[in-house]
Simulated assay, not measured.
Amino acid sequence: MATLFSRVALLDWRHCLAVLAALWLVGCAQPVVEPPPPEPAPEPAEPKISPAQAKANKIAWRLSRGDRALARDRLLSPNYDNAYDHYQAVLLLESDNREAQLGLQAIVLRYLDMSRSAAQRSRFRDAEIYLDRAASVLPDNAAVQDMVARQREAMDKPLERPESSDSVRLNTSALAARSTEAKAQLATLAQRARSQDIMVLIVAASDAQGRWIYQTMREAVPGYLLRGDIKIGSPARIEFLPPP
């Protein structure tokens, strides 16, 4: 009887071992399940730009491109990247934009300067072309058309123009040094030209000096298109020309 009990106990013990072994094998056979990767952090949303800010950005970009083209004498060409097109694009967005209006005036003045330089080298055909381009930039601006007409007339009749009865001589030494005194005198004369809305004739020793005088006077009356012409001669002076 004891022997039989021992055998049964032995069998139960072996059965338990077999069951445990089977369970262990099943556990080992199970694939290892790794935890899912963490969700990526959401990208920060780009700040929304209001329509007004988008328009201001576009205007600023166009003005920058226009100024750059103007500095490089890309006035009416090449297509789509010239000063005229950029300034006109600004005016389509904002019709009273002062910087774009002044940019167009600067194109006119540059063509007038190029026309004078060409005429002084007897390149009259080129001078005429530059005058035509100057007139085309602001065709409805009476002051621009008057400047073009006067320069065309001076080129057609290159006679020595007598000194006007209404003229102011410039300090030659101060002018040569481009001193503060010279700038102050030119600013005063520019203010007079604006108040009377009359054209000036700049008589200077050289074309470069004449351009500097004109630029200095123009900067003294911002927003006003100073109508002027340049003549090489002496003494250096500013002549105030009566209307035709």
Rank of each mutant, 00 (worst) to 15 (best):
T180P: 11
F240Q: 08
A41K: 11
A106G: 00
G103F: 03
R218K: 15
G228D: 14
Q120T: 13
L10R: 06
L93V: 01
A193F: 04
A184K: 15
A118F: 03
D85E: 14
S77M: 10
Y224K: 09
Q215E: 13
G27P: 01
G210D: 09
E153K: 11
K231W: 06
I230G: 02
R110H: 08
A29Y: 05
R7M: 06
V19K: 11
A208Q: 14
A54M: 08
D126P: 00
M114R: 15
A135I: 00
R192K: 08
V221F: 00
I202V: 05
S195H: 05
L92M: 07
P222H: 10
I230P: 00
S234N: 13
R133E: 02
A18W: 09
Q105R: 15
A118K: 02
L63V: 12
E160Q: 15
G228C: 09
V137G: 10
R116Y: 07
W61N: 14
R72A: 13
N171Q: 12
I232Y: 09
Y130L: 02
D96Y: 06
A69G: 00
L75V: 00
Y87N: 05
T216V: 01
A71R: 15
L17V: 04
V90A: 08
V8D: 06
A56R: 15
Y87Q: 03
A182I: 08
I238K: 01
L138Y: 08
R116F: 10
K48L: 14
T216E: 07
M114V: 02
R7L: 13
E181L: 13
W13E: 11
R62L: 14
P222W: 04
G228K: 02
K183H: 13
A184G: 06
S167Y: 03
R178N: 14
V32S: 11
L92C: 04
L189W: 03
N82Y: 01
L25T: 13
L63R: 08
E160F: 05
L92R: 15
N57A: 10
L109P: 01
A22G: 15
S179K: 05
P35M: 06
A89F: 02
L131F: 01
D81P: 01
P37H: 07
D140L: 10
W212R: 10
D67M: 07
M1S: 14
N82M: 02
V200F: 04
A236T: 08
A22R: 14
Y214T: 07
E43C: 03
P37K: 03
S165T: 09
A176G: 03
E219C: 01
P42Q: 05
A45Q: 03
A118D: 09
Y111R: 12
D166S: 09
G27K: 12
L112N: 03
P35D: 13
L17C: 07
M114I: 01
L93W: 05
R14H: 12
Q185C: 08
E39Y: 06
E94L: 08
P51Y: 11
Q191D: 07
Q215N: 14
L159E: 15
K157Y: 15
A100I: 04
F5T: 11
V168C: 00
A83K: 09
P44R: 12
R72V: 00
V168K: 08
T172D: 06
D166T: 03
D207A: 11
A41C: 05
P31V: 03
L104F: 12
I213K: 12
